[in-house]
C-alpha cells in the first residue's frame, strides 16, 4: 500500500464523510419525525390518514432505496418537480427510514399496557395529554434499541447516494479508482471511513440495549 497516496486522498475522504454525515443526519432526523407522526396516526386510529400511512409503509418497506432515489431524482423532474441531489438524498433517506421508524415506535407504543392509559385518563388527562406525558416517554425508551438499529441501517444505506451524483464516500472511492486505479488504497480508506462513521453508533447501540434490558427507569 502506498501511504503517500493515502495521505493525498485523505482530504477528499474527509469532505465526503462530512457530506455523508450531513445528509445522513438530516435524513435520519426527518425519518424520526415521519416515524413519530405515523406512529401517532396509527395509535389514535385517525381515519383516512391511517390508511395512507399503511400504504406508505408497505410501499417504502418493499422497494430498495436505490429505486426510490432514482424515482425522486430522475422521474419527478419529468412531471415538473425538480429537487437538488442533496434534498433528494435527505428526502429518500427520510421516507425510507420513516417507514421503519413507524414500526419501531409502534411496537414501543403497543408494549405499554392499556391500564396505564386508563390510569392517566382517570386523573382527568385528555387522550392527547396521556399520549404526550405518559405513553410516549415510556414507548420511546423501549423503542431505543430498534431506533438505533434503524439509524445504523440508514447510515449504511447512504452508500447508494453516489448513484445520484452526490460526492459521498462511495462516490469518492469509485471516482478515484476510476481515475488513478489505486484500488487498494481507495478501498482501504473507504472501509476506515465507514468504520469511523458507524462503529461509535454500533457500540452506543449495544451499550444502550444492555442498559435498557437489565435496568429500566430509575437506575
Amino acid at each position: 500500500m502506498d501511504y503517500a497516496v493515502i495521505e493525498s486522498y485523505l482530504p477528499l475522504y474527509k469532505d465526503a464523510l462530512a457530506l455523508t454525515l450531513k445528509i445522513g443526519w438530516q435524513g435520519i432526523a426527518l425519518s424520526l419525525l415521519v416515524g413519530l407522526a405515523g406512529a401517532a396516526i396509527l395509535h389514535f386510529k385517525i381515519r383516512i390518514l391511517k390508511t395512507i400511512t399503511g400504504i406508505y409503509i408497505e410501499l417504502f418497506r418493499n422497494t430498495p432505496l436505490l429505486v426510490q432515489l432514482f424515482f425522486l431524482y430522475f422521474a419527478l423532474p419529468k412531471i415538473g418537480i425538480k429537487i437538488t441531489a442533496q434534498t433528494c438524498g435527505v428526502l429518500g433517506l427520510g421516507l425510507l427510514g420513516g417507514a421503519y421508524m413507524i414500526e419501531s415506535f409502534r411496537s414501543g407504543l403497543e408494549s405499554i399496557a392499556v391500564i396505564q392509559t386508563e390510569s392517566a385518563l382517570s386523573l382527568g388527562m385528555t387522550k392527547e395529554q396521556t399520549f404526550i406525558y405518559v405513553i410516549l416517554p415510556q414507548a420511546v425508551s423501549i423503542s431505543v434499541p430498534g431506533l438505533l438499529a434503524n439509524v445504523i441501517f440508514l447510515l449504511k444505506e447512504t452508500s447508494v447516494f453516489s448513484t445520484i451524483s452526490l460526492m459521498d464516500l462511495m462516490f469518492t472511492a469509485k471516482d478515484l479508482i476510476g481515475m488513478y486505479a489505486k484500488t487498494i488504497e481507495c478501498l482501504f480508506l473507504l472501509v476506515v471511513f465507514y468504520l469511523i462513521m458507524l462503529l461509535p453508533v454500533s457500540i452506543l447501540g449495544s451499550i444502550l440495549e444492555r442498559r435498557l434490558r437489565y435496568a429500566g427507569f430509575g437506575d
Binding site: 396505564q116 386508563e118 392517566a120 386523573l123 382527568g124 388527562m125 405518559v134 416517554p137 415510556q138 429500566g216
Partner: peptide
C-alpha cells in the same frame, strides 16, 4: 387501581404533580 399504575418513567414526586400541573 389494583396494579397501582404509577408511571414508571417518572419519579414519585413527578408522578404526583403531573396531573395537577398539566390538567388543572
Amino acid at each position: 387501581f389494583q396494579s397501582y399504575e404509577l408511571f414508571p418513567h417518572l419519579s414519585v414526586i413527578d408522578n404526583l404533580i403531573l396531573a395537577p400541573t398539566k390538567v388543572q
